[in-house]
Computed example of a mutant assay.
Amino acid sequence: MNQFVDITNRKVLYRLLLNLDASAVPLWGKMKPQQMIEHLINEVQYTNGVKIPTWDGPHENTAARKQAGIYTDAEIPRNIFLEDLPDTLTYPDLETAINQLMKELDTFDRHFSTLNVKVIHGGFGPLDYNEWIIWHGKHFTHHLKQFGVITW
C-alpha cells in the first residue's frame, strides 16, 4: 500500500500535527487548519464510542466500496465534499484541538479493546479496529497533505 500516516504511532502523529500552522492556507478545499482538526475529532468520535454512527445498509456495493477504500492504496480524492463546515469552532485554539484529537484516539484504542468490536462506517459498513486504523490513516494523510504537512 502507499504510505499513509500510521495513527498508532502517536509520537510521530503528534509531531506531524504540531507542524500544522494555524494560519496555513489549504492546497485545496475550504477548511482552515483548526476546522480540519475539529473535523478529524468529530470523525474519530464516531469510531470511539462517543458518537453513534448510523448506516442504512447493507447495500449491493458496500463490499466493493470497502474493498476499494480499505484494501487498496487508493487515496481519498481531493475536494470531496460530504458535509458543511460548522459556523463556529469548538476549541479555543489549534493546539487545544490537536490535544483533544490525541485524547480521542486514545479513547478509540480503549473502545476497541473489547474483542469483536465493530463500528459502522457510512459507506463501508461495519469495520474492525484494523480496518479503522487503515481508514483513519488514509483520512489523516488526506488532510495533512491538504495543508502541506506531508508531501508523500
Rank of each mutant, 00 (worst) to 15 (best):
M1P: 15
Q3P: 10
Q3R: 14
D6T: 02
T8F: 06
T8W: 09
R10H: 13
K11W: 09
K11Y: 09
V12Y: 08
L13P: 15
L13I: 12
Y14Q: 06
Y14L: 04
R15F: 10
L16Y: 01
L17T: 01
L17C: 07
L17K: 03
L18R: 14
N19M: 11
D21N: 14
G29S: 09
G29R: 04
M31Y: 15
M31R: 15
K32I: 01
K32P: 03
P33I: 08
I37P: 02
L40H: 08
I41Y: 11
Y46A: 05
Y46T: 04
T47R: 09
G49R: 00
K51G: 07
P53D: 14
T54D: 10
T54R: 07
T54P: 00
W55K: 12
D56F: 14
G57K: 03
G57T: 06
P58R: 11
H59W: 00
H59S: 01
N61T: 08
T62R: 12
T62F: 12
A64N: 12
R65M: 08
K66N: 03
Q67M: 10
I70H: 05
E75S: 12
N79S: 06
N79H: 01
F81G: 08
D84G: 12
L85C: 15
T88M: 04
T88C: 04
T88Y: 10
L89G: 02
T90E: 05
Y91Q: 04
P92L: 00
D93I: 00
D93V: 00
E95H: 05
T96N: 00
T96A: 00
I98F: 01
N99V: 05
Q100G: 14
M102N: 11
D106M: 02
F108G: 10
L115A: 15
L115M: 11
H121F: 08
G125T: 09
P126D: 03
P126W: 03
L127D: 06
D128L: 07
Y129T: 08
N130F: 14
E131V: 03
E131D: 01
E131K: 02
I133A: 07
H136K: 15
G137F: 13
G137S: 14
F140Y: 05
T141I: 03
K145F: 15
K145T: 15
Q146D: 02
F147N: 02
I150L: 07
T151K: 15
T151W: 15
W152A: 13
